[in-house]
């Protein structure tokens, strides 16, 4: 599906734009999660085959001819684990932000100039 591929790329570019321009740390993490969603949409739309059904072989799919009736299962499996990891990484980044805020009382990147804190 070409439209979802374009949508994924647009979301990726918007997310990177947000990560580059915003000063607020929470806004940067929001940009990261938009990039995450965009990448997942790209991977899933690469695996889509026109007019085929989900890779679950139940009564609606002919078992003898299953290979020609289902979409690619590998991108789904990859994205499934990537989403869960994305949540854990986001939680880790946000707890770093909470720690930084407790130390310096600021959410702006400009206030964190020194490398050691």
């Amino acid at each position: 599906m070409i439209f979802s591929l374009i949508l994924g790329f647009l979301l990726l570019i918007i997310g990177i734009y947000g990560m580059l321009t915003q000063k607020n740390l929470i806004k940067i993490v929001i940009g990261f999660s938009i990039v995450d969603t965009g990448t997942h949409i790209i991977i899933v739309s690469i695996g889509y085959l026109r007019g085929k059904t989900a890779p679950i072989i139940d009564s609606s799919v002919d078992i003898k001819n299953a290979v020609n009736a289902v979409v690619d299962p590998i991108p789904s499996a990859l994205v499934l684990t990537a989403i869960v990891i994305g949540l854990a990484v986001t939680a880790l980044m946000l707890s770093f932000i909470i720690k930084l805020y407790q130390k310096n009382r600021s959410l702006s990147v400009d206030d964190y100039q020194e490398l050691k804190w």
Partner: peptide, 22 residues
């Protein structure tokens, strides 16, 4: 896009837990 497993995960994690954590 015929990926119901991914849809379930994204609905529960992406819109539920990520928002709550933020």
């Amino acid at each position: 896009l015929a990926a119901p497993d991914v849809a379930m995960t994204e609905a529960a994690i992406g819109s539920g837990l990520t928002t709550i954590i933020f």
